[in-house]
Amino acid sequence: TSEDEWQCTECKKFNSPSKRYCFRCWALRKD
C-alpha cells in the first residue's frame, strides 16, 4: 500500500518499501 512507501529526502519521490534506493534519483534511502 502507499502508506508503506518512503519519501526520498533528495527529490521527494515516494518509493516502494522494498527499494533501498530512490527510483528517480537513486539516492540511498535515509532511515
Rank of each mutant, 00 (worst) to 15 (best):
T9A: 06
E3K: 11
E3T: 09
K12L: 03
E5C: 12
S18T: 11
K30C: 03
D31T: 07
T1V: 10
R20F: 14
D31V: 05
Q7L: 04
R20C: 07
Q7V: 03
E10D: 13
K12C: 04
E5A: 09
C8S: 01
L28Y: 03
T1D: 05
N15C: 07
F23A: 15
N15L: 07
Y21M: 15
C8V: 01
K13Y: 03
C8H: 02
C11N: 02
F23H: 13
K13C: 11
N15A: 05
D4S: 06
W26Y: 13
E5Q: 10
D4L: 10
P17A: 13
K12S: 10
A27I: 03
W26D: 15
T9Q: 06
R24M: 06
E3Y: 04
S18W: 02
Y21H: 12
R20S: 14
C25A: 00
T9Y: 07
Y21K: 14
D4E: 07
C8L: 01
S16F: 13
E10V: 06
C22T: 00
D31K: 01
T1S: 04
S2I: 13
C22I: 00
K19N: 12
L28I: 08
P17G: 09
S16Q: 08
R29P: 11
A27M: 04
S18L: 04
W6Y: 06
F23K: 04
N15I: 11
F23W: 13
R29H: 11
S2P: 10
E5Y: 09
C11F: 00
E10W: 01
C25Q: 01
E5M: 12
S16T: 09
P17Y: 08
Y21I: 12
D4R: 05
T9E: 06
D31H: 05
K19C: 12
E10F: 09
R20A: 15
P17T: 04
W6D: 04
S18H: 13
S18F: 03
Y21T: 12
K30M: 13
K19W: 05
K13H: 10
P17Q: 08
R20L: 14
C11E: 02
C11H: 04
